[in-house]
């Protein structure tokens, strides 16, 4: 249905349509980069080997995400159990009022660096 949209609404046709119908990335891509290394064209052309590359990237990104979530569950998700023990009120304030935030930020920071590194490694693998 998206191809009937007036051209002044670019967002849905580019995204949902092109990708949903197996359109190898965007139509303009091939023209812009005429020479691809072999692995790259495997990905562009949606071959089995191309899918294997994508799967390997997804797996490494999912591993990073699950590690971050595991850290969140362990460090923050366990707090209700710990604080259910008779804890001094000051500890509850320190943990929930202040301490949690740097921990959450640190996990996020680790994840962003890790996810970007995964993408760089992937690009390196495919381009060389």
């Amino acid at each position: 249905m998206s191809e009937h949209h007036p051209p002044r609404r670019p967002r849905r046709e580019t995204v949902t349509y092109a990708s949903a119908h197996g359109g190898a990335a965007a139509p303009g891509t091939a023209g812009r980069r005429p020479v691809h290394p072999p692995a790259r064209s495997e990905i562009d052309e949606q071959t089995t080997l191309g899918h294997t590359y994508v799967r390997s990237l997804m797996r490494s990104q999912l591993r990073a995400a699950l590690t971050a979530l595991g850290a969140l569950a362990l460090l923050v998700g366990s707090l209700p159990l710990l604080l259910a023990l008779p804890a001094p009120e000051a500890l509850v304030w320190a943990a929930l009022g202040v301490g949690v935030y740097p921990v959450v930020w640190a996990i996020a920071h680790w994840y962003v660096r890790r996810a970007e590194r995964n993408e760089r490694d992937f690009t390196g693998l495919v381009e060389h």
């Binding site: 580019t14 949903a20 359109g23 965007a26 303009g28 891509t29 994508v54 997804m58 993408e119 495919v126």
Partner: peptide, 22 residues
């Protein structure tokens, strides 16, 4: 959906592979 591999590739690949079309 038949386009699942293509859309998953788009979701996870860095933009230099798919192009930031929009």
């Amino acid at each position: 959906p038949p386009g699942t591999p293509a859309i998953l590739a788009r979701l996870h690949l860095p933009e230099e592979f798919t192009g930031t079309v929009p």
